[in-house]
């Protein structure tokens, strides 16, 4: 039976096809779906922040891109995935507020996107598709059967990436 597995903010979950992995209401956060088609094992991470080294107090691995992704990938491998077969799809990193005094360097959405891309590149995991940036929030539904990711946005309907 196909199950929907929900991933909360600053968390990640792994499961097998044909289950769906879902994360709701990504704003500046980024959702990273990673999948190995052959072993049918996949994971979804909902990160809040880019690099843990930029923060004084690190209390939860799944919050930071640089800690969450290596840990999730290690678990995928333990559950039968092969690292060199892994592919990723990413979504999120919106800039929800456009206050005039905003410092672009502090744009957390953009920093999250850049960090995720860099970390995936370092781990040699190719990004097959992305829907990032902009000013709108997103819900991400990962269908592991086809490794198809549906993105929902208010006023924009649903699209597949």
């Amino acid at each position: 039976m196909k199950e929907d597995i929900k991933v909360g903010i600053a968390d990640y979950k792994i499961t097998k096809s044909p289950n769906n992995l879902i994360t709701l209401g990504l704003g500046s956060c980024v959702g990273i779906a990673v999948y190995d088609k052959k072993s049918e094992v996949g994971g979804l991470s909902h990160i809040m922040l880019p690099y843990s080294s930029q923060y004084r107090k690190v209390n939860k691995v799944a919050k930071y891109a640089d800690l969450a992704l290596p840990e999730m990938i290690e678990k995928l491998v333990k559950n039968g995935a092969r690292k060199n077969r892994l592919v990723a799809k990413i979504a999120g990193g919106a800039s929800m507020f456009q206050f005039s005094d905003k410092n672009p360097k502090l744009n957390i959405g953009q920093r999250n996107i850049e960090a995720v891309k860099e970390i995936l590149k370092d781990m040699k995991i190719p990004i097959k598709a992305e829907d990032v940036g902009g000013t709108l929030g997103r819900t991400m539904i990962v269908d592991l059967e086809k490794f198809e990711v549906s993105i929902k946005q208010i006023g924009k309907g649903i699209k597949n990436i």
């Binding site: 500046s28 929800m96 507020f97 957390i108 997103r138 208010i154």
Partner: peptide, 14 residues
């Protein structure tokens, strides 16, 4: 006009 979760989490994180 957006999802409550996206707005609220981003407001706190930012």
């Amino acid at each position: 006009k957006d999802m409550f979760g996206a707005i609220l989490t981003t407001a706190y994180i930012e």
